Structure formats: C-alpha cells, structure tokens
Amino acid sequence: MGAKTMNELTKDIKFNVDFKPSEITIQNEEQLNKLVAATVEHYSSLVFTDENIPEAKEAKTKLNGISKLLDDQRKEVKKSYSEPLKAFETKINALRDQIKGVSDNINVGISDYEEKQKELREEKLIETLSEMAPNYGIDIAAVEIKTTWLNKGSFTAKGELTKKVLEEIAGIMTLIAKENQRIKDDKAIIFNYAKAVGLDADGWSSWIDKGHTSAEVMKQIDQAVKDKKAREEQKRIAEEQRIAQEEADRKAKEEYDQEMRKLRERTVDDKVIDTETGEIIQEDTELTRQEIEDTQTYTLKVTGTHEQLSALNKFMGNEGIKVEVI
C-alpha cells in the first residue's frame, strides 16, 4: 500500500460501535417496594420480647430469602450484560494490538533513521571543525562540541552547517586561540622571572597550565624568595652560633685542663712535683725559706661547680697558696 493511500486511509477512517442498551424491569416492583418499606418501618422500632422473638426469627428467615433472591437476579442480569461486553472488548483489543504493533515498528524505523542522520551530521561537524581549527592554530580536541550543533536545524537542506553555527564555532575558536597565546606568554614571563631569582623556572611556569595567572604566580615566587632568604639567614646565624659555641667549649676545656694540672702539682723542697707521675716540673725559686717555715697546712674538702672550683683554684694560685690532691 502506498504512502499516499495510507495517509488517505488514516485521515478518512470513521469508527462507530452500534450499541443498543436494553431496558431492565422488575416484575411486581411496586409490591416489593411496599414490602420492604413496611418491613423496615415495623422492625426498626420493634422492642424484642419473649412473645415476639419467634415471629422476628421467622420474618428474618423470609427476608434473608428475599434478599438472596434479589442478589441472584442482580448477578444473572450482570452476567447477561457482561458477556457481550467482554466479546466486544476482545475484538477491539485485538484490532488495537495489531495497529500498535505496526506503529511500534514504524517508531523503531524512525528512530533508526534519525540516529543515522545524527551520525551523518556529527561526521560533517567533525569534518568542518578539522578544516577550521588549523586556521586558528588550535587543536580540535580543545573545542567542546555543543549538542545544539547536532540538531537538524543547525544544518541546511544540503547537509551543510548554517552560517549562524559556523560563526559561533569561529568565535569559540578565536577565544581558544587567544587563551592559548595568553598561556604561552604568561609561561614565558614566569620562566624568566623565576630564573632571574634563582628558582626552578620550569616548575614555576607549569603553574600557568594549572589555571593561575602570571600575577598570582609572581606573587608566590616573591614569597618563595623571601622564605628562602629567611631560611638562609637562620642557617647562617645557627652556623655562627655553632662556631662560637665550639670556641667557648674549647676555651673552657683549656681552662679546665690548666686548673686540673695545677691541682695535680705541689711544691716539695723548692720543686714543683706532678702528684700523679712524680715528675719534677720546675724549681720553685720564688718561695723563701722563711715563707716555707711560716706555711700552714689544712686538709679541706671543697664542693662546687666546675666554674666555682676553677675560680677558687685561680685565686689560690694568685695568692701563692699551694694545693695538693689528697
């Protein structure tokens, strides 16, 4: 069947259902209504006693029978009406399912066609981008493809991108080219600046690739130089302090050794004797015999710090007091 014939069929189709509702009547309906009304009125206000309980039970049995009869009649009528409806629904559903099956197949075909057309548009878009990118000195990978560029409305009837889309792409590529040049220039600035102050030029220039501006990086470089100088000054001060401490320790050791030598020496018969080795160090020509005779000897135990003992020993040496190690 041709497309034109199918369109005419779907346009002109008319569908109606011939349905003639039947009338449902209840025989003796008036008598039934009177019976129900009288029963409701009688038993609604009835006070049950020993005398009327048998009558009430008998009436309940009869009323339940009538109620069941009414319900059975309702079910029978409903069944008679439902069977034609079910048969009708079965026919209609079968026809509907056939139509839906064809419609679904058409929908799949349309989707496949549209997907194929989208792929062709994408191929054309990539081809166009590849042709334009070298003119701006950029890599096509830097261009983020917008989903709207793949819409059917972004292409002409001949399958070419519209002028509006081409202008939009050109504008984006211009911005990318300018940004690439800025990054290149900023990296050169930072490289030379870092190199001039003695820092790692390649390492600092790589900050530009991470999205930082040259002004931000130069500020960080200045701080790094300041920190470096501070560390070097601290290192210099620490070295001077170390040298001074070593000199102080050396002098203190010399004084200590000198004082210990004095403590080990004593004078015997005008001779200075090393009390540990017994060696005669020098003749004592300063003491007179009278001074020797007037000399008194005391045994003392002296306790103090190294500095205090050194000062005491120096004082005794200056006063000519001889010290022996006992």
Score class of each variant (00 low, 15 high):
Ala215Val: 07
Gly153Phe: 00
Ile26Lys: 07
Leu70Lys: 05
Asp97Leu: 13
Lys146Ile: 00
Tyr43Asp: 00
Lys226Ile: 10
Lys226Ser: 11
Lys34Pro: 05
Ile326Val: 11
Glu246Ile: 15
Glu122Asp: 08
Asp274Leu: 03
Asp71Ala: 08
Thr49Ile: 08
Asn16Pro: 01
Ala177Leu: 10
Tyr136Ala: 09
Glu58Phe: 03
Arg264Asp: 04
Lys163Ile: 01
Asp97Ile: 10
Val36Leu: 11
Thr39Pro: 06
Lys219Pro: 02
Leu150Asn: 02
Lys322Gly: 05
Glu240Val: 14
Thr39Val: 03
Arg231Val: 10
Ile208Pro: 07
Val302Trp: 07
Ala238Asp: 09
Ala56Pro: 02
Ala201Phe: 06
Thr303Ala: 12
Phe191Gly: 00
Pro54Gln: 02
Lys79Phe: 15
Leu161Val: 08
Thr5Arg: 14
Phe191Leu: 03
Met260Gly: 00
Ala196Asp: 09
Glu286Ala: 12
Glu89Leu: 13
Thr305Arg: 01
Trp207Gly: 00
Glu123Thr: 11
Ala194Leu: 15
Gln308Ala: 06
Pro21Met: 06
Ala230Leu: 15
Arg261Met: 08
Glu122Cys: 04
Ala177Trp: 13
Glu30His: 13
Asp186Glu: 13
Gln117Trp: 00
Thr299Asp: 09
Lys228Thr: 10
Met173Arg: 02
Ile110Ala: 10
Glu255Tyr: 10
Trp204Glu: 05
Ser45Asn: 12
Asn192Lys: 15
Lys229Asn: 11
Glu239Ala: 12
Asn33Lys: 14
Val77Gln: 06
Thr174Met: 05
Gly198Val: 13
Ala59Arg: 03
Met173Phe: 15
Lys229His: 11
Asp12Glu: 09
Ala224His: 03
Glu179Tyr: 04
Ala252Lys: 05
Val272His: 06
Asp227Met: 08
Glu89Gln: 13
Tyr193Met: 01
Lys163Ser: 04
Leu63Ile: 03
Ala238Arg: 14
Leu95Glu: 07
Ile243Ser: 04
Lys195Met: 07
Lys152Leu: 01
Ile281His: 02
Asp50His: 03
Glu293Cys: 01
Glu23Pro: 06
Gly101Lys: 14
Glu286Cys: 03
Ile208Gln: 02
Tyr136Pro: 06
Lys235Leu: 09
Gln98Gly: 11
Ala194Asn: 06
Ser45Tyr: 10
Phe19Gly: 04
Thr128Glu: 10
Glu83Gly: 04
Ser205Gly: 06
Ile92His: 03
Ile145Gln: 08
Thr285Phe: 01
Gln223Tyr: 07
Asp222Val: 04
